[in-house]
Design a protein around this nucleic acid. Sequence first.
DNA 1: AAAAAAC
Length: 458
Amino acid sequence: MSSFADLGLDPKVLSAIAAAGYEKPTPIQAGAIPPALAGRDVLGIAQTGTGKTAGFVLPMITLLGRGRARARMPRSLVLAPTRELAAQVAENFDIYARNTRLTKALLIGGVSFKEQDALIDKGVDVLIATPGRLLDHFERGKLLLTGVQIMVVDEADRMLDMGFIPDIERIFQLTPFTRQTLFFSATMAPEIERITNTFLSAPEKIEVARAATTGENITQGVVLYTASRKDRQAKEKRALLRSLIDREGASCTNAIIFCNRKTEVDIVAKSLCKHGYNAAPIHGDLDQSQRMRTLDSFREGKLQFLCASDVAARGLDVPSVSHVFNYDVPSHAEDYVHRIGRTGRAGRKGKALMICVPHDQKWLADIEKLIGNEIPRLESPLTGAPQSEKGPKSVRTDEARMPPRKREEKRDSAPRTDPPQEKRSRAPRREAPVVGMGDHVPAFLLRSFRTAAGETAE
DNA sequence: AAAAAAC
């Protein structure tokens, strides 16, 4: 495939790409960048992990060039469904716009208006926003969208799921008819098709293979589990999760554990911590600063187990997640695909393990129908225990019985909790280097480019 | 039986 230099990007953008260590554009980038630079509308059908974000950020920076932002009139707009995804786009913008003087504002909920207002007043080139907060600013009369030359809609299918489509339509109508539109969706549901027919004109359509339908690089398994007694299910399920984690041993460098409910996320995170695992929760009821902090420490490798609701199921890109545990079977089959797509990213290997209680088997059947494959049944690591009369007692691991001091020692041999800070940064958890660009470049990767010259880019 | 997103 061609190199970035062949795509017509601004030299300043090219040097930022080189500084980040990237060489070749991914298929979605190679397909979307040239028409975007030519001023055409783009309809990209691609999931995260395909390099989609750079696919619109790079041409956007090039197109905005050196023009100047005017007060309260942003020149471009990026819409994302969740706050974390918007923040991820903003990080990407910072990386690739570092050699330009372009400015941005991140407009998301959960944080104060004050700073966002100040930036808008001053004038920004790029607004990156979730729909609710953007409209909130607009209604306060703080924002004019009549200067928007380029509008990007990211993860449109998720916007649809979340009921954002009316907001998106409204925002479209607030921007000039002459704007350029770059529109990305993982699927083309009828409603998405309708929107693109209405708001895009003669778009260049680029479709790349689904990244993680159930990608060959993800090993899957499910443990069918029946509680010894109904009232013990919750407790035994948590013990089962721990023994599944333990069975993975050192290969489980970090993991996302998905639960269906926010309350369950909290309970599982708390329980894991109690048993000496390095875990923290993330879901929509936690305040935004905490969500960001938790996600950052997971990305940096300081947090090993991220217990999450589906807020983290789609789009979030942490390149080196070794495992996804589905503590609950997702009730919508598609969510399964999104959840397990958090591992096995950028060509790495990943493992996705799920616990299925009898009540959830109908959903398991839905998932298998969707992915067109049977998920291999795994033997429970607590062989016989869940069905036995003994209940939780027999499922306890040795570790759980150990006094805290002992547990501390065991941690060093099995890399479950934090290795010392220094050790962690010197030996990042990475497998074979992968050329090409994911949607997100976490800060720790950039650090290693600067410090370790010989290091290959991911 | 749910989650997310504006206040």
